[in-house]
Design a binder for these strands. Sequence first.
DNA 1: CTGAAAGCGCTAACAA
DNA 2: TTGTTAGCGCTTTCAG
Lengths: 370, 370
Amino acid sequence: MHPTRLALDDDLRHHTPKKFDRTDRTACKTEGTGGRNRAVTMSTIARMAGGIQATVSRALNRREIVSPETLERIQQTIEATGYVPNLVAGALASSKSPMVAAVVPSITNIVYSGLIHHFIDLVRAAGYQTILVEAGFSAEEEEALVTSLISRRPDGILLTGVHHTNRCCSQLLSVGLPVVEIWDLTESPIDICVGVFTRRLARLWRTLPTAAAMPLPQPRWLAKNAPYAAGTPSAQPSRRWGTRRLCKLIVEGPASLERGRAALRVLLERGMQSGVIFGSSDLLAHGILIEAQARGLSVPADFSVIGFGDQDYATATLPPLTTVRVDRSDLGNRAADALLARINNMAPEQRAIDVGFSIITRGTTCSQRN
Amino acid sequence: MHPTRLALDDDLRHHTPKKFDRTDRTACKTEGTGGRNRAVTMSTIARMAGGIQATVSRALNRREIVSPETLERIQQTIEATGYVPNLVAGALASSKSPMVAAVVPSITNIVYSGLIHHFIDLVRAAGYQTILVEAGFSAEEEEALVTSLISRRPDGILLTGVHHTNRCCSQLLSVGLPVVEIWDLTESPIDICVGVFTRRLARLWRTLPTAAAMPLPQPRWLAKNAPYAAGTPSAQPSRRWGTRRLCKLIVEGPASLERGRAALRVLLERGMQSGVIFGSSDLLAHGILIEAQARGLSVPADFSVIGFGDQDYATATLPPLTTVRVDRSDLGNRAADALLARINNMAPEQRAIDVGFSIITRGTTCSQRN
DNA sequence: CTGAAAGCGCTAACAA
DNA sequence: TTGTTAGCGCTTTCAG
């Protein structure tokens, strides 16, 4: 193979925005009608089809109870006018919007968005639309958001995590909205919760042979277990955790490849010799692998790495990443099922649904017992 | 450093779900009240505070026009009852929900979610909540979704891409909803559009020195330019494109590290010698880097790689990734600005806003001219 | 099967 | 400043 030379034309390299003028306004609609043209409603359709508004409503919601001819006429006029029913009026009258709300800390984090993706699919299949909102990681922000969500009177609501302000919980409770909390498991959820049982994981950490370091946080419930305050990459003095010496490293902000790399640098500076590094996300763990490679260190010969999340790319790293897997699609599905069940007034069999987790052993750990 | 041994207790390794029973039902609410307890409304508050419903409405929306004492009394009762206003009634009465809708192909793809994140922030600052929905990559699905969104009467709507069904466009037009389309730029948007001017990018590709391969698609508008049908990883016979020989490789499905690795394997099998490989996303490009490394090939000595997206991790790869950057936060912000402007009935200065793009040169290309 | 009529909980004139 | 009164566009009894 020969080296490749690549030269970029300077004028192409940065493409400076081009301006359009607004001569072509074909699509602009506020013109011509002179003021807002009266919206077409059910009554409009009824009048045009020679019937009454209630019949149109029936034609739309329970087609089987109107005569075929009437139905036909109504459908034709609907088609002709391009009428779209007003769901907010419907929701007011029937006090049920076909809608649920989902609150996640971050929509850009695949850990949440992947799960929510499945959730949305399932509730959609049941006829519900999802209004998805981002709450950041603060319970106060969440409270404000939840209040404004409640004011939209969704049929149900999904919350991430189990730490909510008191106001938030009591509001939810007093409205009597079905709510499902995901990720953490608590034995006294607001309504139902589905997720993994945190203490189990913590216990797992504690029993592992040599815990060398543990970049944090991201999944909130890992963060919860951190005995040290967060700070910019800085190692804490090693201390005993369970029966092992643990050096915990808090990585501030969202996980990223770069933060993972930085984490390993810090750990090495602090004299880390060997052991296993826990990443609170696969991304962080992957960053650690890359930094190791850049420094000529070998994983798992020099140290082990365990990620969290089992993202799809965990099989594609060098070497493939050992990681903690929580079945997110399962979680999303169960959350949807549980919420739908509650919406339909079914008492849940269990109030806390544990989806469990497992360790997927790949190339970044050695699996021999010692 | 010494090798690390890692042994996992078998009973801990897989944590089988634990069952909870439902004895603790402290939080269950359908109990006690015997049937649905009448919801508290503005009238309830008014009665309790010794006033009239309209005053409560005023206290909530335009506090400055009610007397301090009345305000005080009302606020206290609201506090006491935990009353949350019903926005759907409000929306019906005022025919404005403080809400906009956003339609993206995929919420799990950071390319969209990153941008939407900014969009949401900005419109929220203006008092609007965003209902976010996923449309997949089909215009038909999108149409159905848009219809159901319209039925919720949002104040505005954001669409991804410029390819929509006719019904979709005409419905949007007939409702007279402010709409902003993002990513692609077209000179005849439904309402306004903000994004990058595709033809410019295509022209850039064409002038590059040696185009060896181009894994596709993901950004829809790259896909659009593909002269070959999609298929599982398989190289197309090289053909002339512009003045260069181009070997295009279509990668099916969403981009992933693994698909990038597979792509390089295929390209090598097909006898790729040198040149530059375009990834339609940074993830794909990163996969290519990893595979190169696994095979002992050197980038950019053996071949160059250019990604797309300038994700945060592009600086953290080995070597750092040269990539095409579209400022997504800028795009999200401008989209929000544009939509808000339209909602406030301001005629846009331009109907198409070009945010441009740039090539960020890092370590995976050599920059010497030839 | 179709009509008539009473709201759903709020906003927005208008009047006092 | 507060009270009165119409609706918003639909769902849902209840009669016909």
